[in-house]
């Protein structure tokens, strides 16, 4: 504890770490919201969605683990990150495949499409 509580001006190192990680996660949520509004088609918006799902969750769970370091917290934190990183790509893949197959994307903004014809 004493090493973590060390700091200057009454602000502990732990407070700084907590603040930075919360801000990283909040920034990811904000960028995802803006991306959802600005990106032009389903497949691009899918990329915007993966940011808070992965880096946002990793940052926030790491944050909880840093502010309450105990074995139970850390194992649960590892489990959350593990499940999130296992399930997020699956749903992204399912949505992406459905979007491609139903043609819900703009072909005019694709540089190349090496998948066409293989379907």
């Amino acid at each position: 504890m004493s090493a973590l509580e060390w700091g200057f001006d009454g602000i502990g190192v732990r407070d700084v770490v907590t603040g930075v990680l919360v801000l990283v996660s909040a920034l990811m949520c904000f960028a995802a919201g803006v991306g959802l509004l600005r990106f032009p088609d389903v497949l691009s918006r899918l990329h915007a969605a993966t940011k808070p799902q992965i880096l946002g969750v990793i940052a926030i769970v790491a944050d909880v683990a840093v502010s309450n370091p105990s074995l139970a917290t850390i194992t649960l934190a590892v489990a959350i990150v593990f499940f999130q990183s296992l399930t997020a790509p699956v749903s992204a893949h399912m949505v992406g495949r459905a979007a491609y197959r139903t043609g819900h994307f703009r072909t005019d903004i694709l540089v190349t499409d090496e998948f066409r014809g293989h379907d």
């Binding site: 907590t18 919360v22 996660s25 909040a26 990811m28 969750v57 944050d63």
Partner: peptide, 10 residues
Amino acid sequence: ICAIGAEMAI
């Protein structure tokens, strides 16, 4: 998820 976690961390 991020908001609930942020509340917990703070």
